[in-house]
Design a protein around this nucleic acid. Sequence first.
DNA 1: CCTCTTAATTGATATGAATCAAGAATTACT
DNA 2: AGTAATTCTTGATTCATATCAATTAAGAGG
Lengths: 218, 218
Amino acid sequence: MYKLSDLPLFSMLNEEQLAIMQSQLHIHQYDKDSIVFYEGEKNQYLYILLEGVVRLYKTTPKGTQIHMHNFEAPEAIALFVAFENVEFPATCEFLSDGYIGLLPLKLFHECLNNTDFSVSLLKALAQRMKLLATLLHKETIFSSEAKIADVLYTNPSIFERLKNNEIAYMLNMTPETLSRLLSKFKKENILKIDGHIVTILDEDALKYIIETNKMRCS
Amino acid sequence: MYKLSDLPLFSMLNEEQLAIMQSQLHIHQYDKDSIVFYEGEKNQYLYILLEGVVRLYKTTPKGTQIHMHNFEAPEAIALFVAFENVEFPATCEFLSDGYIGLLPLKLFHECLNNTDFSVSLLKALAQRMKLLATLLHKETIFSSEAKIADVLYTNPSIFERLKNNEIAYMLNMTPETLSRLLSKFKKENILKIDGHIVTILDEDALKYIIETNKMRCS
DNA sequence: CCTCTTAATTGATATGAATCAAGAATTACT
DNA sequence: AGTAATTCTTGATTCATATCAATTAAGAGG
């Protein structure tokens, strides 16, 4: 299990401060599939993932989920909620067994006096913002074809590690849609799939799809 | 025209620092409809809106626009891009005549040594993050009906100030869709429209739509 | 007040992706 | 290996919303 000092965010604090923080940290154990917090709840703590992997998602009125992000320990979760007194914009669920450290917000806010701390916090927040902006782009600009082309281009190894089922839900589309579009990509000789190994045959075609949301010829 | 000191963000700096910053600020004049920066460009400056109103939007491959936010002076624009060396995630266009101050990023980064400055910057970033999270929610969770119910509930006066046309584009739907759904709302006695004044008759129905994406009966 | 322009409405059709429903192909389990 | 359980594929249908096209309504300028 990680400690506070393992997070780049807290590494700027001196040992004394760190000791205080660590002593005030409430550590909770979670089983796989358990929920850390629900979308819409209000928070009293900064949530720090000390061990395991969590998934953040939104739930639609129909009950389907919009996958946002996975986080691996060590990582602070829901950072911006710690500043604005707002509801969690997503639900946080463990994908493995793990531990969360709950840091009282009061204590967290006291750390802001430390310039190095607030600067590294700024950096961390900006990174989260980038994540959010990327997600917004994918969900509002990309077609399903473009989403698939994007993972194929940026992270093709995911097809070796996960089931198509799981990939579909990470891309916020149904497995049927993923299956159909992968077949289409195969037919257009953009890629080939042997067993679980995806080989990209035409990288330019992928770039074209990412830019235009459509396949070249048809 | 506003000055740096009018932004809460910069108000924490002492007069000396502020004078240096203000002197290094390149001020540009823009006409209505002119573009401050395009989505995909890289930046060298922090953009500070000193006068006027701007609009941030993304452009889809088809050429349609996804409206993100309007900002009124005085306000810092594209804050998080100033930290991460990334491309602008949106295009910035003036809706009025106005002025932008360009602050060299180097100078901006030097201010981070000032704790009060970095704390108020944190606050500002967190607010932007909230804006982004809200936008993501609207675009991924809300149906068109729910988007309309949401403006009716949170900002009904907008119907007196703007044309339906403009409202539709702020909600990222076509004017036809807005028109059709407003008629549907009228037929269900959720609201009435006299001239340009919208009166909400059934607030609970609006809440229901926001929560479920659907109208109650049918 | 009347034309001209702009905005709003209405209908028909198209589109992308979800949903529903089988079947086929893998993988896992004794 | 043989059966059961999962996962993947394929087809038919539905759904929400955009698009295209035409008409009506409203507002502005002379």
